[in-house]
């Protein structure tokens, strides 16, 4: 914007950016550092910036001698399942909002907004009772269903904004060219929405991956614990195995980071248009 600025000002600007970077990255660095520090050194140099020795021992223990691999798998199943189902359903709803005028549209959008406003914890008790009544406590399916419902409104608004970005003319041209509406959707709209679908998948995956409280409530068997629940249980039981806990934490970070890198470029455009639009 402004073309000229004094060297002092730009130095201050870079310093500020560096501070932000440090603040953002230091906790993650610390997590990784402790995870890599051998057990016997944690108490003597726990607060040193750089460890004198590093080891992968903690990771090895976590992966092979604890149920974390199973937690990891459960979380992956839940998150991928939620992301896939949510994106599919939200794509349908977003398409309807973007392309059709119909009776009750405002009402449905309003209801979706309502679900974004009230404290989700309000429904934790009813959901627990419903799931228990269906005999679905401790099942990953119930988690997928619940998470899917939670994420549909946001994902729908997000998908709607992506569909809005695709000119209606294209579908109509396809229909003039001999497509049914569904064929037009499949051959013309779908290929163009791929980035949007990817971003939505990413958002929903990350959200499902980090959900803790409902998982705590609905799951208490070791076999179906998701990663957050497992890690928390682990922490409260073995609160001295710092290195192992942090190694587990680093592992939990990996899928989120992969998705984050994937969706990073859509963040600024996608999140805002999806989040703010009503």
């Amino acid at each position: 914007m402004t073309t000229r600025s004094s060297p002092l000002l730009s130095a201050a600007r870079y310093l500020a950016l560096a501070l932000y970077l440090g603040f953002a990255l230091f906790p993650l660095y610390w997590l990784l550092k402790i995870a890599l520090t051998p057990d016997q050194l944690i108490y003597t140099e726990g607060t040193r910036m750089l460890p004198t020795l590093t080891t992968l021992e903690n990771f090895r223990t976590v992966v092979f001698q604890t149920p974390f691999l199973s937690y990891f798998r459960n979380s992956l199943v839940v998150s991928l399942g939620t992301a896939a189902v949510t994106t599919l359903i939200a794509a349908g709803a977003g398409y309807a909002f973007s392309r059709f005028r119909f009776r009750g549209k405002k009402l449905i959008i309003g209801l979706m907004l309502v679900t974004q406003m009230f404290p989700l914890l309000m429904i934790i008790a009813p959901i627990y009772k419903m799931v228990a009544a269906l005999g679905m406590l401790n099942s990953l399916t119930s988690l997928i269903i619940v998470y899917t419902a939670f994420n549909i409104p946001f994902a729908t608004f997000l998908m709607q904004s992506f569909f809005d970005g695709i000119p209606r003319d294209l579908e109509e041209a396809a229909m003039m060219d001999g497509c049914t509406r569904f064929q037009a959707l499949r051959k013309v709209v779908f290929p163009l929405t791929l980035p949007g679908l990817g971003a939505t998948l990413g958002f929903v995956f990350t959200a499902a991956w980090s959900e803790l409280l409902f998982a705590l409530m609905l799951i208490n068997s070791n076999e179906t614990m998701t990663f957050p629940v497992g890690l928390l249980t682990f922490v409260s039981k073995f609160s001295v195995d710092w290195g192992q806990m942090m190694a587990a934490g680093v592992l939990a970070l990996i899928p989120s980071c992969i998705f984050f890198i994937f969706i990073q470029r859509y963040l600024v455009q996608g999140l805002t248009s999806g989040a703010v639009k009503g």
């Binding site: 953002a24 610390w30 980090s210 957050p228 989120s256």
Partner: peptide
């Protein structure tokens, strides 16, 4: 990308990380 990274960190992990950072044994 780096400065936005904390947003991608699962909340339970942010919580644990910061709890550890505040812990006098292993946190600075």
């Amino acid at each position: 990308a780096l400065v936005f990274l904390p947003w991608a960190v699962p909340t339970f992990l942010s919580a644990l990380t910061w709890a550890w950072l505040f812990n006098p044994v292993i946190g600075p």
